[in-house]
Simulated scan of single mutants.
Amino acid sequence: MSASTTKANTLSLHYLGDRTLRKPCKRISKVDQSIRDLAKQMVQTMYAEQGIGLAAPQVGVNKQMLVVDCDHDNSATPPLVLINPQIETYSPELVTGEEGCLSIPGVFLDVVRPKAITVKYKDEQGRPKKIKASDLLARVIQHESDHLNGILFVDRVPNDLILTEALNKNGFSANAVQTLKAEG
C-alpha cells in the first residue's frame, strides 16, 4: 500500500469533546462488503495517523469494530480486525502503562489495566474468533474496546492535576473528561 493510496482512503478523526465519542456503539448484525471496506479504511487511517489502534467511533461510525496493529513494520503480522469484540476474562495482575489516543493528540498519560485478557470477536469474514492477549496488545484492545462503550483513556487517569495540565497544554478541556469511579 503506497503512502498516496493511504492518505486518499483515510477517514476523518473525531476529537475529545465530540459527542460521537461518548455514544455506546451498536453491534454489527451482518459482516458484509461494506463492513470489510470500513475495516480497510480504518486500517489505512490508523497507519496514516501513525496509531496502533483505532475504534469505529473515532471516525464517526457508531459500530462495534476496532482495528489493531502493534507491529506494523512487520508484514508477517497483519492488522487485527475485531468486530463485536467482547472481553471475556481479565487477568488479576494489573500493570501501569502510558497511553495516548488519536482522538486526543499530544496527551500521553499512565493508565492501570489488566496485563492479559481473553477476547472473542468476529473477523472481517464474519468468522468467530477468540484470542488471548497480553502486554501491549491487551492494553490496545482494552483501550479501543473502551471507545465502543463511550469511554476514553483520560476517563481512567486518577490524577486530576496531571490530567488537567496535559489536556490544557494540548488545547483540550478537562470538562470533556468523564472520570470513572475506581472499582472494588
Rank of each mutant, 00 (worst) to 15 (best):
83 I>H: 01
90 Y>H: 14
77 T>N: 13
99 E>R: 01
105 P>F: 08
80 L>G: 02
97 G>I: 07
102 L>S: 10
89 T>S: 15
90 Y>R: 12
84 N>P: 06
77 T>S: 12
88 E>F: 11
77 T>M: 12
85 P>N: 01
86 Q>L: 08
96 T>Y: 13
101 C>R: 01
106 G>E: 07
106 G>V: 09
79 P>D: 03
88 E>T: 15
85 P>V: 00
91 S>C: 08
93 E>L: 10
97 G>C: 13
79 P>G: 02
84 N>E: 03
90 Y>P: 09
98 E>R: 10
92 P>H: 11
95 V>H: 10
105 P>N: 08
102 L>R: 09
88 E>M: 14
94 L>F: 12
93 E>Y: 08
80 L>M: 15
78 P>W: 04
96 T>H: 14
88 E>Y: 11
101 C>K: 02
105 P>R: 02
94 L>W: 10
79 P>L: 02
77 T>H: 12
106 G>M: 05
83 I>F: 01
80 L>C: 09
106 G>I: 06
94 L>Y: 11
88 E>H: 12
100 G>I: 02
84 N>Q: 04
105 P>Q: 06
92 P>C: 05
104 I>E: 01
104 I>L: 05
91 S>M: 06
90 Y>A: 09
79 P>R: 01
86 Q>V: 14
82 L>K: 06
84 N>L: 03
83 I>V: 11
106 G>K: 03
103 S>V: 09
101 C>F: 02
81 V>H: 05
80 L>Q: 09
97 G>D: 13
98 E>Q: 10
79 P>T: 06
77 T>W: 08
93 E>I: 10
91 S>V: 08
88 E>A: 13
81 V>F: 03
95 V>D: 11
83 I>K: 01
102 L>M: 15
78 P>Y: 04
80 L>S: 08
95 V>T: 15
79 P>N: 06
97 G>T: 14
92 P>M: 09
105 P>I: 04
80 L>E: 06
91 S>H: 04
105 P>G: 03
103 S>Q: 07
84 N>S: 05
93 E>T: 13
83 I>G: 00
97 G>M: 12
102 L>G: 09
104 I>Q: 01
91 S>I: 06
78 P>H: 05
99 E>I: 01
103 S>P: 09
90 Y>S: 12
94 L>D: 10
87 I>F: 00
103 S>H: 08
82 L>T: 07
90 Y>T: 10
103 S>E: 06
82 L>D: 06
89 T>K: 15
85 P>I: 00
91 S>Q: 08
105 P>V: 07
84 N>V: 05
89 T>C: 12
97 G>P: 07
90 Y>F: 15
87 I>M: 00
78 P>D: 05
91 S>T: 08
79 P>S: 06
79 P>F: 04
89 T>P: 11
100 G>C: 07
94 L>E: 14
103 S>G: 09
106 G>H: 07
104 I>C: 02
104 I>W: 01
78 P>M: 04
88 E>S: 13
92 P>D: 12
82 L>A: 08
101 C>M: 07
88 E>W: 10
85 P>M: 00
96 T>I: 15
105 P>A: 05
94 L>S: 11
97 G>A: 13
84 N>R: 02
106 G>T: 04
